[in-house]
């Protein structure tokens, strides 16, 4: 496997020295995220999230399946994530790299294992029919911090998605077409958002949130924190990298708490705007 080309020495030195003065190449403050741009597609559950030049496409679809015997009362959720070679030069098809494994695992933890979606509400007929939600995440371009972007795209796609209304008469399940009955949104317990901080080898340099591609490459350690607007942490992931003191970890959590509240507002606003301009029900 070819290693991705590392940034050249002058490039690194320039970045380190500018970061030391709390200057970032894209003019952001160290603790300022890029404002995500959410674009909704023609279908429900089709979301494109762009943070700067990082772009991720998420799509949700649902179909009815027979549940596995060990969990007859729960719906199923699967997440397919794919980093196409188009996203950046270091990605290539074949055996997934560490970064891709991390992305898939984090998506799984943030979106599925954090119980964001009420799986029991996806059950239609116990032991017979449940909804199987499939979230497909396509990473279109990587300009740093793809994880946060993918998590955001995924969770917004779930929020945007609406499943067809169903009716159970005896043992028969009737699925209503959207033109007959309005599709219903998924029942969700909470909305987790992920925030990534990058730390640098020089301990005097302040950490940055939402690192750009270069910042991520020269960083000596990342910490990803997923949490919801209710201050509940869902995932903390700091796998190695530069050692941090307890205070630094807690400081990062504090910042993430505030960012989550702001991001939650933005997402709610965008979803409302989209819903107003959309005509789903035909009456």
């Amino acid at each position: 496997m070819p290693r991705p080309p590392s940034p050249s020495i002058p490039e690194k030195e320039f970045l380190f020295s500018s970061l030391k003065e709390s200057l970032r190449l894209d003019g952001r403050q160290p603790l300022e995220t890029r404002t995500p741009i959410l674009t909704f597609g023609p279908d429900l559950g089709w979301v494109e999230c762009a943070m700067g030049k990082t772009r991720v496409l998420a799509q949700v679809d649902a179909k009815m399946v027979k549940p596995p015997p060990e969990r007859p009362l729960e719906g199923m959720i699967t997440i397919h994530s794919e980093v196409s070679p188009m996203a950046g030069t270091e990605y290539e098809p074949g055996r997934p790299s560490d970064e891709e494994v991390n992305l898939t695992r984090m998506l799984d933890k943030v979106l599925r294992r954090s119980d964001a979606i009420d799986k029991e509400s996806l059950c239609v007929l116990a032991g017979q029919r449940v909804w199987h939600l499939r979230l497909t995440i396509h990473c279109l371009s990587d300009s740093g911090n793809m994880l946060d972007c993918a998590c955001l795209a995924g969770i917004v796609a779930f929020k945007h998605f609406r499943r067809p209304e169903v009716e159970v008469v005896g043992d028969e399940v009737i699925v209503h077409h959207p033109s007959e009955r309005a599709p219903v949104p998924l029942s969700m317990h909470h909305t987790p958002f992920c925030f990534t901080f990058a730390y640098f080898p020089d301990t005097d340099t302040a950490p940055v949130i939402d690192p750009s591609y270069m910042e991520q490459r020269i960083s000596a350690g990342l910490i990803s924190i997923a949490l919801n607007a209710q201050k509940e942490l869902c995932v903390i992931q700091k796998a190695g990298g530069v050692p941090l003191s307890e205070e630094q970890v807690l400081a990062a959590i504090d910042i993430a708490v505030n960012k989550a509240v702001a991001l939650d507002k933005l997402v709610t606003k965008r979803l409302e705007e989209d819903w107003k301009g959309r005509k789903v029900e035909v009456r």
Binding site: K109, R113, S114, D115, H190, I223, L227, K231, E232, L233, C234, V235, I236, Q237, K238, A239, G240, G241, P243, L244, S245, E246, V249, L250, I253, D254, V257
Partner: peptide
């Protein structure tokens, strides 16, 4: 020796105040 942490992972929901 330094009391610093190199790895922190958590997978389930927990209120921020409990983490400290």
């Amino acid at each position: 020796r330094t009391g610093k942490v190199t790895l922190v992972t958590m997978e389930t929901r927990l209120h921020a105040e409990r983490v400290t």
